[in-house]
């Protein structure tokens, strides 16, 4: 009694999947940009001379990295209305929680990237008369960012997969759309297979891009220039 695969319904319903994919793309892009922004600030906190800033950074990073993303999402979904007084949309809750989630991981990328810059670079910048902020902005970050790009690529892939968590609060991204279709057509195997194929087709090039860039950087001894 072999299972009979039948993908025919997808030829009709694919526009729905496309709408779901658009939701995924929107959530992914916004949370990635916000997460990298949060990560930059927190990453600098983690390397700052001030002990207070370093502690704030550490608490944030450890709290987020050591709790399940799914629980964070659900928590924000219920916490936002309590803080702001109005019911947050699934979209807002998803964006906020995934940004904060990505922020914690990318803060660690920034921290490690900043720490990878030789002491001599900081000292040379200091000796010219640059303060901490200017050392960071003109000397350290421009060098460190290039080294971080492969890690950011991996983070972007992780986030793309994490957007599927938003299906649990009924945000209309790809997995949620697929769930609706699967139940409607009673064809979960085919539908989820399609979702898998879509993710793979989109993320595989990003993945290879990271590897390519990493090799290119290694050849140049970690220094990028144009």
């Amino acid at each position: 009694m072999a299972y009979e695969w039948d993908f025919a319904f997808l030829w009709v319903l694919w526009p729905h999947l496309l709408v779901g994919l658009a939701g995924t793309a929107k959530l992914w892009a916004v949370a990635l940009i916000c997460g990298l922004g949060i990560g930059l600030v927190v990453g600098i906190f983690r390397t700052a001379p001030s002990r207070i800033l370093r502690s704030i950074g550490t608490v944030y990073v450890e709290a987020i990295r050591n709790t399940p993303g799914l629980i964070q999402l659900i928590w924000f979904y219920y916490a936002i209305p309590m803080v702001t007084g109005w019911q947050a949309s699934a979209w807002l809750a998803a964006v906020v929680s995934l940004s904060i989630y990505t922020g914690a991981y990318s803060a660690e990328i920034y921290r490690a990237g900043i720490a990878s810059i030789e002491r001599g670079q900081w000292e040379a910048a200091r000796a010219i008369g640059f303060g901490f902020g200017a050392q960071m902005r003109y000397i350290v970050l421009p060098q460190a960012l290039m080294r971080m790009i492969p890690a950011f690529g991996n983070r972007a892939i992780e986030l793309a997969k994490a957007t599927t968590l938003a299906s649990t609060i009924a945000f209309g991204e790809l997995l949620y759309t697929a769930k609706v279709i699967a139940e409607d057509q009673m064809r979960p195997l085919e539908t989820y297979t399609a979702v898998t194929v879509i993710f793979t087709v989109i993320l595989l090039p990003v993945s290879y891009g990271c590897v390519w860039f990493e090799r290119r950087l290694a050849r140049r001894g970690g220094v990028h220039r144009d």
Partner: peptide, 30 residues
């Protein structure tokens, strides 16, 4: 420090900047 020039054993030039930019970044930014 802007009034005290320092030359290090390990040079410590900024590798992401050209020779010219290495020399001009201090005067321009500071």
């Amino acid at each position: 420090r802007t009034h005290v020039g320092m030359v290090f054993q390990q040079f410590n030039l900024f590798p992401h900047l050209t020779v010219e930019e290495n020399v001009t970044i201090g005067p321009i930014k500071i």
